[in-house]
Amino acid sequence: MSVFKRSSRDAMAGGPAVVLDANEPEIKVEHVSVRFDGKKGAAPVVALQDVSLDIRQGEFISLVGPSGCGKTTLLRTIADLQQPSSGRITVRGQTPREIRLQKKYGIVFQNPVLYDWRTVRRNVCMPMELKGVPKKTRTATVTEMLELVGLYHFGKKYPHELSGGMQQRVGIARALAIKPEILLMDEPFSALDEFTKEKLNEDLLKIWNKTNKTILFVTHNISEAVFLSDRVVVLSPHPGRVSAIVDITLPRPRGLAIKNTPEFGALVAKVRNSFEGV
């Protein structure tokens, strides 16, 4: 329930909109370390050690690495779900907390985290209710979002009636509904079968194309990261650190066929070879 602690002050936040310099990175991660205290007497666990990273606006960036490399911790730190032990994160010139309170984040977890008592439409609608969006706009936006993720005809269904892939699409539609500046995705497709995952990968690129969001995508699947991203950040464990950043130079728009090209294979190999100490 630690989530609640700071909520009472939420209403007071807000702050002016910041106009970004085109050259200024949207998200700046500077020398961030995260340590978790070990159980009684045990050494603290270093989840992230001195991580620095700049993310440009509109960029699709993936964090890849094996379990324990701190990729999820890094995403959670940017999302203000976790505080850095040292170092600083700046998002559009503000703290992650300020950005969160302005409702500029959209988040998708590994589980769809849908509300089973709400229909698909009302699930997508939920964040807009919190934001105080007028009802007419809400209805229009829900329709727009469901069309975007290809679930327009399933709006009246309940989550448990949908397949895993469809539930995850609802989660994406919900995250996009409040028009966030930054979409945070924490292993969103890792629980899905390979075919569904590839299909959703392709669809995610189409959605990204249409919406132009900055997407921070956490995955342990190298091929998925290479297929989706502009840049792949390779993290290595014990302690979690950035061991390489690989530019994905593949042309866009990308279709699944690109996976058969030698360039794709070379980039996958390059990412794989960047891991240290695994």
Partner: peptide, 10 residues
């Protein structure tokens, strides 16, 4: 956590 990220009040 989802509610937290979209800044829902208590």
């Amino acid at each position: 956590e989802l509610m937290h990220v979209i800044a829902a009040s208590k």
